[in-house]
């Protein structure tokens, strides 16, 4: 992730079992479209989206930040799983998708969490239950259970997101939360490093700026 003034580029990877709706989620967010059957993703698909996060505190000021999200939408079939590291290595955030009408797809989430925690430094993990429009008819995973799992595994500040790509419920909020969290984490890292350098008053302004930029290439 790199930052130039108040803009940053971040990599986001979407993971989860076959048919949970990873592509539909991304298409709703990026193109605001939905089709009941999107073509199966082979390997992975790549999309970008620009957005703006307002009102984040940076160096004591309220700041707006422009973000370019690079999104890897991966294939869900089990045999493509061995390729996943190519996409999540170097990613800043991961969205793990399960289908609220499929208990199995929810079970699969925990192995993704473990794999990411084992193989990546500090990737920001978000758990998402999809197909919320089918909740009344065929929900298999109660929200409370998913929520409890997320808090236990990722910490008490995390929430499960339930969304519907079909009727767009929760999709913009999800990506906004993900992006906001990325920006805040980046500023946090930046702040920590500045504090560490605080004693070093010899640095001239220009050099200070230069080292700021360099240090944010996470």
């Amino acid at each position: 992730m790199s930052m130039h003034g108040s803009s940053l580029e971040a990599k986001l990877v979407i993971l989860g079992s076959q048919g949970v709706g990873k592509t539909s989620l991304v298409m709703r967010y990026v193109q605001n479209t939905f089709s009941p059957h999107s073509a199966s993703t082979i390997g992975a698909s790549f999309l970008t989206q620009r957005m703006q996060v307002f009102g984040v505190i940076r160096r004591g000021y309220v700041d707006d930040c422009r973000v370019v999200l690079q999104i890897w939408d991966t294939a869900g079939q089990e045999r493509f799983r061995s390729m996943a590291p190519m996409y999540y290595r170097g990613a800043n955030a991961a969205i793990l998708v399960y289908d609220i009408t499929s208990e199995q797809s929810f079970q699969d989430i925990s192995s993704w969490v473990e794999e990411l925690q084992r193989n990546t430094g500090d990737i920001d993990i978000h758990v998402v239950g999809s197909k919320l429009d089918l909740a009344e008819k065929s929900r298999e995973v109660p929200q409370e259970r998913a929520q409890a799992y997320v808090r236990n595994t990722l910490g008490s500040l995390h929430d499960v997101h339930e969304v519907s790509a079909k009727d767009a419920t929760g999709v913009d909020e999800l990506f906004h939360d993900v992006t906001r969290s990325l920006v805040e984490r980046t500023y946090e890292i930046e702040r920590t490093r500045r504090e560490r350098q605080a004693g070093d008053v010899q640095l001239r302004d220009g050099r200070q700026e230069a080292s700021d930029q360099a240090c944010c290439n996470v």
Partner: peptide, 13 residues
């Protein structure tokens, strides 16, 4: 079952 989940998604258009 994997095939069945995929059939509608091979050539949806």
């Amino acid at each position: 079952e994997t095939i069945e989940r995929d059939i509608q998604r091979c050539y949806p258009n």
